[in-house]
Design a protein around this nucleic acid. Sequence first.
DNA 1: GCAATAATCAGCGCTATCGTTAACGATTCA
DNA 2: TGAATCGTTAACGATAGCGCTGATTATTGC
Lengths: 107, 107
Amino acid sequence: MNDVDATLAALADPTRRKVIDLLRDGPRPAGELAQAVQMSPPALSRHLRVLRAGGLVQAEAGGEDARLRLYTLRPEPFTALQAWLDQVQAFWAEQLGSFKDHVERGR
Amino acid sequence: MNDVDATLAALADPTRRKVIDLLRDGPRPAGELAQAVQMSPPALSRHLRVLRAGGLVQAEAGGEDARLRLYTLRPEPFTALQAWLDQVQAFWAEQLGSFKDHVERGR
DNA sequence: GCAATAATCAGCGCTATCGTTAACGATTCA
DNA sequence: TGAATCGTTAACGATAGCGCTGATTATTGC
């Protein structure tokens, strides 16, 4: 199981994907994320652990209040996934020469 | 659950991801795929059903032998996933102005 | 017609995952 | 010091997913 598998496994859950979308607006503490996805703090904590294990997010110690753990997005897994996607899409790039065939087959 | 969720759920399984990689070399019948991933035909048939439901592959009736079902990649889910990935990566694009902060935080 | 082949469907255990409540460190503030 | 808050870990029941064997449908070729 390579990196991309771990990334896709982490992104497979709708709750975790929603967390990713929430973090696009900036770092947030765990509790705020739990409230946003309507889930108990322990349940979300497990999801955050999966996201951390996959390297998709990281927790920073919030400077002002040491009880808060601010979660932030990490770029590496996403760029790796995009690289794999580019490889897959090369499949159709190769067929550009016989583009009509592909369109007909796609119907 | 929108399209991207179904796509990611389909790609979460390592076997299904391997099938995608195999199909990058061109269409193949179900039995050949089962042999390539060292799995019983019924087990792989279930995986192919998931991939079909997500629109990632489609089965064509092989012209010469109607018993064979040739599986082929479909582009739509992959482009949709890439669009979502681009949205996520816009998170770091916004931080280009304060690039030093991001690097320091990433350590 | 009849045996053989390709693929799927159906039913069965097994394991992993998910969400909840309860309990546990760590930190803040009166 | 002691109550309250934030986050995590632990343990439990419930659910869903995976792979197997056995049976079923469709097609091929004798």
